[in-house]
Design a protein around this nucleic acid. Structure first.
Lengths: 333, 333
DNA sequence: CTGTTAGCGCCTTCAC
DNA sequence: GTGAAGGCGCTAACAG
């Protein structure tokens, strides 16, 4: 059934060694990426034999002895949000560049986490990058039998490296922008308050509002989605003395913009200013020129990949690596 | 360094067996998902021991004997397009439900394919799902040392299963819709013509135009992106006798809509009708009510996962499994 | 039902 | 520089 090779089972290193007329050990050394003692004559014979057989090493077997699988787990709730597009493509690319492969694990719910733990269906990976907020650090360490979990979801503890956007800075800039435009009253549209990241975000907004004397007259809970933005907009209609609406996701801001589009001719605010969060590349579309808060995704990814590639440098209780966020003005504010 | 277990190295099945006072084989059988002969008394002892140790099987070692890795490679160009969001989340979820994990492999270029082949960094997976059009069937079989590659990119041969949307049907419906609205002349905005899928798509449009006597007065090449839609719109301005514009992606249609928004008050066409392709969930946003062509993504994914889970049923030269597409009217047409 | 044995494919000692 | 031997963790096959 193999349409590119004459033998049935894939060739092993033993086949290569036999064809080259050397021992398995020599074949192994010749094929290694590290410099290992082999006479250059035999090395060439081995490489020729490997090529002829179309030999591909079995990485699984290799991992069994080397204890390094070159596999990185990326654990997510789902890849559904628009903001995911901006991040994961880059992340996967960079992980591959450092010679590792990505196992993408989708954890739609806590039930899924428990199932994983029960059945042990998770590979023993070199590192796990945890975006999902359904799993905390100890759980993930257990899932992958590895201390090398990198927590990106806010559920970290002192034992694992952490990389987080410093959202306070961007929020402060956005609120300062509003204050400079004489905003006195605001509404805040939030996501799921269960996430620690979201809780911190909300606190930052509240602090900044207080600092600038902006009156937070209404908080509406959404779920980051466009639809929940729609709903929030309806809940906010009628509030007359509303100078600005801050949303903790761009998608929700998009929903609000669409409901209140008459108030934004050409995207510019006539009744209230609109601030999003995430700085989606989607806001480059003409129809959604939403002022937002974002960070340098390339830098974020670089920090993550650094942590993956250099497991040694982390020390217990080391402070999180942060990535600065900043306000990105567009027409809606 | 293990913060959830007293021992340093992760426990192996030998540890579990020792603690339970049984042989490794019995422990293995007791922990197996398949029904294997073990006395229920020993089974319980083994399970208790495994729980106490926090034992997680090493899937790598397991694979080495069972010859099945429960790993599926999903090979993509990138996950950048909006249409990807609608598909991959579902796909990964369903693959996990049948008990397999996804290795997501991003092949940004043909150079990357060659690098993969040279370095042999690809795991020996149970199946490879190929969306990327940078790799053809023989290449992918070589990459993964597996005949079980499922080609979804149009580059298939007779030796591997194929699942493709039947795009002709949806295109025919869309063009019929246009014809029924007295469209006589049209422009076509395409993606990269190098892809066989795109070539077939273009041919389908041309055939349908001919059938209904619609005059194809201009073809513009884009790259599926929003930006290329913008550019195409500018290239199309000035064509006076233009009744309809068909795009081979929704993103390009969105770009055109934004440039010509004055011609679509409330999304409804006043000068020409606009047809997209993909039926993005994004077109549920109020700002982009684009008539499109789409298929049932759940059905598509089901066929793919069926093929993954049942490697046996495919026979050489078997015809492709198709998924019907249909026209989805919205306001722009 | 149970335990022993023999590998899976690979790499790494360790003598030579 | 080389090869033989042992072992990574696990399960299949075999005797009992």
């Amino acid at each position: 059934m193999n349409h590119d090779s004459s033998r049935d089972a894939p060739p092993t290193i033993a086949d290569v060694a036999r064809l080259a007329g050397v021992s398995r050990a020599v074949a192994s050394r010749a094929l290694s990426n590290e410099p290992r003692p082999v006479s250059s004559e035999k090395r060439e014979r081995v490489i020729a034999a490997a090529t002829r057989l179309g030999y591909q090493p079995n990485l699984l077997a290799q991992s069994l002895t080397t204890k390094t699988v070159n596999l990185v787990a990326v654990v997510v709730n789902h890849i559904h949000d628009l903001s995911d597009l901006d991040l994961f493509d880059r992340l996967i690319d960079q992980i591959q560049i450092v010679g590792k492969q990505v196992i993408l694990i989708r954890i739609g719910s806590v039930a899924r986490v428990e199932e994983f733990l029960r059945n042990g269906v998770a590979y023993h990976v070199d590192a796990a990058l945890v975006f999902s907020d359904f799993a905390d650090a100890p759980t993930v360490r257990r899932m992958f039998r590895s201390d090398h979990v990198i927590m990106l979801n806010g559920l970290h503890d002192q034992y694992s490296p952490v990389i987080i956007p410093d959202e306070r800075a961007g929020i402060a800039e956005a609120v300062a922008d509003a204050a400079s435009k004489r905003v006195r009253s605001a509404a805040l549209v939030t996501g799921r308050a269960s996430s620690p990241v979201e809780q911190a975000r909300i606190r930052s907004y509240q602090e900044c509002f207080a600092r600038y004397g902006i009156d937070l007259i209404r908080t509406v809970q959404g779920d980051y989605s466009y639809e929940s933005g729609h709903a929030a907009a309806i809940e906010l209609t009628g509030l007359s003395a509303l100078d600005a609406v801050f949303c903790t996701s761009d998608a929700m801001a998009m929903g609000i913009l669409d409901v209140r589009r008459v108030d934004f001719p050409d995207g510019r605010p006539t009744r209230f200013r609109l601030y999003g969060f995430d700085n989606l590349s989607l806001t480059d579309f003409d129809a959604y020129p939403i002022s937002s808060i974002g960070y340098d995704k390339a830098l974020y990814v670089r920090h993550i990949v650094d942590a993956v590639a250099n497991p040694g440098i982390f020390k217990t209780s080391q402070p999180p690596v942060t990535v600065p966020t900043r306000f990105v003005p567009r027409r809606t504010a």
